[in-house]
Design a protein around this nucleic acid. Structure first.
Length: 432
DNA sequence: TCTGGGGTCCTAGGACCC
DNA sequence: TCTGGGGTCCTAGGACCC
């Protein structure tokens, strides 16, 4: 009995001690949806978003990935790597609809589904095996149902822990199933590159490589003290534990969001008062509106300003009371942005502005009066916190009835060429 | 030809309190 | 007169994930 490879399951395990955690992950999700909707795209290199003259690739099909195209890559670079690449604009309404269908199928097997992004989830099937068979069978069935009922390829990893299941689904891609025999976990993990581990990105991978640590087995054999020193106590301890296959995490329903934010890239712009006010006003409107829709408010406001060359700085302020009023958020964000810009007089242009609100608290009923911390970082203005919040609430209601652009404090934001479409933002904002 | 948008968590230093 | 150590909160930066 082997570990299992790619599309074929070659191991079935004992139910009581077996690999009862599944990680299910749709393959190249956005691109696969486009190939599903348009048969002419099947088997061909497809990029969602981007284009040779601007924008960034949001997702690439496996045919495109084979040429080196990756998500996040500028469109011109992708076109360079893959001249046959077909750019499509994306069906942003279809993605959540189809992903929800897939999640419904997963939910048929167990209520213990932890969705961690639009296109992937953990399942604890320990209570389901008596009904549906061992995890390997459940994985096979789920993959077949998703393929038949939704039309999309999905990879599944099954193992004793979340980390192993996630690594297994990565190994299974594309369109495969890998079941890790609990007796052979070390055999499975040891030869794999550390980059496959959750939490190892390019920086950590390089730091480890500098110490000659390339595989998960290498990592497991390394002394914890050295790893803590190299990567910091938290990351060092966690990664070493995962490499040693010590992962006590349970499948749990997802926690509430801890922050709400929005950002806008703008090529390169001189930060004029008009530009900063307009962009931050638009971002504040989105962020504050989402907070109010969730009946939440936040005490900490963070603004990020990115200069040329991807160098970015943040400025934040923690208030004594939580806010969710658009105008208040706009004013604070403006002050913070100018702090950041003034602190960097050598930077003539900016390429992105972002607002994030954290330290969230529930906010039912009326917005509390804002206590201004000394020294006042912004002018209180005439409208007080509660009045502003009440005004926002009525505007929220108007938008709900007449559409997003029906009312607003500020003109619609400037949309440069290559900008990401609004429906992509809405997709990203959606709660899972 | 120059890099999207939504998040989470960790770290380090300083302020402040006991 | 000088001093310890722990805890919490805030700010700024950074790594990472999808």
């Amino acid at each position: 009995m082997l570990l299992a490879v790619r599309t074929g399951v070659r191991y079935a395990c004992d139910v009581s001690t077996g690999p009862t955690i599944l990680h299910a992950d749709l393959d190249a999700f956005y691109a696969s949806v486009e190939q599903l909707l348009d048969p002419a795209l099947r088997g061909r290199p497809v990029a969602v978003g981007g284009g040779p003259r601007g924008g960034v690739v949001l997702a690439a099909s496996y045919e495109a990935k084979a040429t080196g195209v990756q998500g996040g890559m500028p469109g011109w670079r992708a076109a360079q790597l893959c001249p046959a690449l077909i750019f499509v604009r994306g069906h942003f309404d279809e993605y959540p609809r189809l992903a929800d269908q897939v999640m419904d199928i997963l939910g048929d097997v167990t209520p213990a589904v932890q969705r961690i992004s639009i296109d992937e989830a953990f399942l604890d099937v320990s209570g389901s095996t008596h009904l549906f068979g061992p995890p390997a069978v459940i994985g096979t069935t789920l993959r077949a149902r998703v393929r038949a009922e939704v039309g999309l390829p999905i990879s599944v990893g099954a193992a004793r822990t979340k980390h192993l299941a996630k690594v297994a689904s990565q190994v299974a891609k594309p369109d495969g199933l890998v079941v890790v025999d609990p007796e052979r976990e070390r055999e499975f993990l040891d030869p794999l590159p550390v980059g496959l581990m959750w939490g190892v990105g390019p920086v950590t991978e390089q730091r480890l490589a500098d110490r000659g640590i390339r595989t998960i087995g290498d990592l497991a054999e390394s002394p914890t003290g050295m790893l803590k020193h190299l990567l910091g106590p938290a990351v060092g301890t966690t990664l070493h534990a995962l490499a040693l296959n010590d992962d006590p995490r349970r499948v749990a329903t997802s926690a509430r969001a801890r922050s709400v934010g929005a950002q806008s890239a703008m090529g390169r712009r001189r930060p004029t008062p008009e530009l900063v006010r307009e962009v931050l006003g638009h971002l504040a409107e989105r962020v504050a509106g989402r907070l109010r829709a969730k009946n939440r408010a936040g005490r900490t406001i963070t603004v990020r300003v990115r200069f040329l060359g991807m160098r970015s700085v943040t400025r934040s302020l923690t208030l004594s009371a939580a806010v969710s009023a658009t105008l208040t958020l706009t004013e604070i964000a403006e002050q913070l942005a100018w702090q950041a810009i003034r602190d960097h007089p050598d930077e003539a242009e900016i390429s992105l502005l972002a607002i994030s609100v954290s330290n969230l608290t529930p906010q039912h009923g009326v917005q509390l009066e804002l206590e201004l911390p000394p020294p006042d970082p912004w002018r209180p203005g005439t409208a007080r916190g509660s009045a502003r919040w009440a005004l926002d609430r009525s505007m929220d209601a108007a938008r709900a009835r007449f559409g997003r652009d029906a009312v607003g404090y500020l003109p619609a934001t400037l949309r440069g060429p290559g900008g990401v479409p609004d429906d992509f933002r809405e997709l990203a904002e959606r709660d899972l």
